[in-house]
Design a protein around this nucleic acid. Sequence first.
DNA 1: CATTACGCAGTAAATATTCCTGCACAATCC
DNA 2: GGATTGTGCAGGAATATTTACTGCGTAATG
Lengths: 153, 153
Amino acid sequence: MEQLDKIDTKILRILQKDAKKTTKEIATMLNLTISPVYERIRRLESMGFIKQYVAILDKKLINRQVTTICQVSMRYHNEAFIEKFEQEIQNLDEVQECYHMAGQVDFLLKINVASLDEYHDFVKYKLSKIDNIGVLNSTFVLKEIKHTSEFYI
Amino acid sequence: MEQLDKIDTKILRILQKDAKKTTKEIATMLNLTISPVYERIRRLESMGFIKQYVAILDKKLINRQVTTICQVSMRYHNEAFIEKFEQEIQNLDEVQECYHMAGQVDFLLKINVASLDEYHDFVKYKLSKIDNIGVLNSTFVLKEIKHTSEFYI
DNA sequence: CATTACGCAGTAAATATTCCTGCACAATCC
DNA sequence: GGATTGTGCAGGAATATTTACTGCGTAATG
């Protein structure tokens, strides 16, 4: 697993914060030339350490300012129902994250919508249409304290 | 707010999925030349619709495969304590997301660590060191069903 | 009908990416 | 110890992309 040396780690830290940094800029930061930095980035990509490069949008500006956490439990816990649920969730664009959890509830979902009205419609017409949902408990985000895509490495 | 037309929206959708797409590629997809696409992207950046470009890493490969959801409630709900908590959280690198919630618990945190051992240390030596924490309830992610940085637009 | 404004096409210069060659150093094997 | 192999880095050339600028056409405005 530890196929990453200090230079690789530094490159990953930089690209997690700003994927638009040029090879030259990174090379300067690390006191290297373009060649090794370029080769290392290609290697980190092909080995899968870097999964993708994405643009992060401002959710207020694009009108997705309401974030909710929704905890869901199944009525019956058999494989078919769970698989069905997991598949249906993939198609719900409002759901940004969904985790199968240990403990009291089965699933935890993070959902972004434009308004409470829209959330109402989402629950009524989309989420609760999925079969076999037992408990469904929504809580609302008052304020986003921290939100990053970075991992600490 | 609706300063975004259909072309802008399409550009944002593309860049949310792949920020490495060249202006030329996007222009081809939208049946335009490079110029308007280039200008629109710069505009979307300067107006703040695009906040940043980041590399998304594979958390298993970089050894951050354990994700936990931690729900925290304050003992006393005064402004000073809450502000202190919010500040301290910023410095905890393991915390990827933190929300101030409506409802039963005050805060919901998403935390990534290498192992249960490391999570134990995180709670014991970092999180619980923050003053005025009342309830602290951790649940573990068994499986990530869905996780994207995309917003539905 | 004239004028302004806006978005797009096209182009040229600057910059970045990509690929290749060769060198230096470390590890490995006689 | 010396020769050999391999790995990572420097440097440079070719290609691609970004960036900035000019001009045109159409829609909006007076």
